[in-house]
Write a protein that binds this DNA or RNA. Structure first.
Lengths: 186, 186
DNA sequence: ACATAGATTGGTTGTACACCCAATCTATGT
DNA sequence: ACATAGATTGGGTGTACAACCAATCTATGT
């Protein structure tokens, strides 16, 4: 009896709407009402699917990192180039249209993490995990510090992309490749 | 007759308090009341010195960039090393105590700029100006794109520093030097 | 066809904030 | 000493929001 769960689907839809509203109107403009409207849904439904705003931010962070990793994995499997260069290309494939939203959403999540200890910890763990993942991909050619530096460059390019998408698209990926070459041993 | 104006001094004090509150409690926690308390001043005084919150954010951005440039200039005049390496060292001298506040304040201003068009434009101009300043310092050894990449790395290190101060302090400056070496011609 | 559990709605409530302002205070020039 | 302009106070006001909830709807199993 009863219906199957739409929870997962709805959560995803609402999180996407959340990212769009954040990107356009920032933290202050991202009211539950605005998010609901963007998702084409009643305000109460947001609370039915998310405990509170913390929950929304947490889900958004998961979705952002999932999107990032998906881009990386999709690229790595289809090409036969150097895995580090492929990583750089995929991570920084900043087409100015769609991923400006992601870049701005990242900014908002970074800022929100300043006031939400749980989100802050989650962010730390994600950064650590991403550094580790990059180290593994490098197979010994990158130290932890150098992998961190590469990730810092990527994050910085996202910030740049949030403010000057066109420019960031121009320098991000080539710069990352050069940085990787400079930092990786042998 | 009448008293001399304390406006400039008060604005500076309140802006410093603003940065501290933002760093500790984020955008949501940075209420006028909280800022006033941190500055040891009555709430009304904040409005006496700042038109509104936009004004506060704008002043904070100016103060952050001024601090950044001051670090750079102080360093460049005292040492006789390569100007680009000096730039990297000074920009990324992230001692984990004091400048974590600045790093987090930067995050908050980035996020706020998403919802405040004036602040957004100001940020764009500041990024452009900083890229130009770096190009000049490089005396032809850096293209605009490569200077942008270096600045992106610096910004990314700030973000990293906001979340993992100790780690960022370890890799930021050395990484920047290697990036500069890889990007600068001759 | 009917019963049921979950989905969805939109109005209500309490709270917390930015901004305002009237009153008071204090340092300076005359 | 007095007058003046700015500094400073703290509470008042309206607004806007998150969170809640009672009512209604709808898909699915039986």
């Amino acid at each position: 009896m009863s219906r199957p769960s739409l929870r997962t689907l709805r959560r995803h839809e609402i999180t996407v709407a959340f990212a769009r509203v954040l990107a356009r109107h920032g933290q202050a403009g991202a009211t539950i009402a605005a998010i609901a409207e963007e998702a084409g849904v009643a305000p109460g439904l947001v609370h039915h699917n998310f405990a509170d705003k913390q929950d929304l931010y947490s889900a958004l962070l998961e979705q952002l990192i999932a999107g990032f990793r998906h881009r990386i994995d999709a690229r790595a499997t289809t090409r036969k180039e150097d895995p580090l260069e492929a990583y750089a290309d995929a991570a920084l494939a900043l087409d100015e249209s769609s991923d400006t939203i992601a870049a701005r959403a990242w900014m908002a999540v970074f800022a929100e993490a300043l006031s939400d200890p749980l989100l802050f910890e989650k962010m730390r763990r994600l950064l650590d995990a991403e550094v580790l993942s990059l180290e593994r991909r490098a197979k010994g050619r990158l130290t932890t510090r150098n992998a961190s530096a590469v990730l810092a460059y990527i994050v910085g390019s996202f910030v740049f992309g949030a403010f000057a998408p066109r420019k960031a698209a121009g320098f991000a990926a080539p710069g990352a490749k050069k940085l990787l070459r400079a930092l990786s041993t042998n």
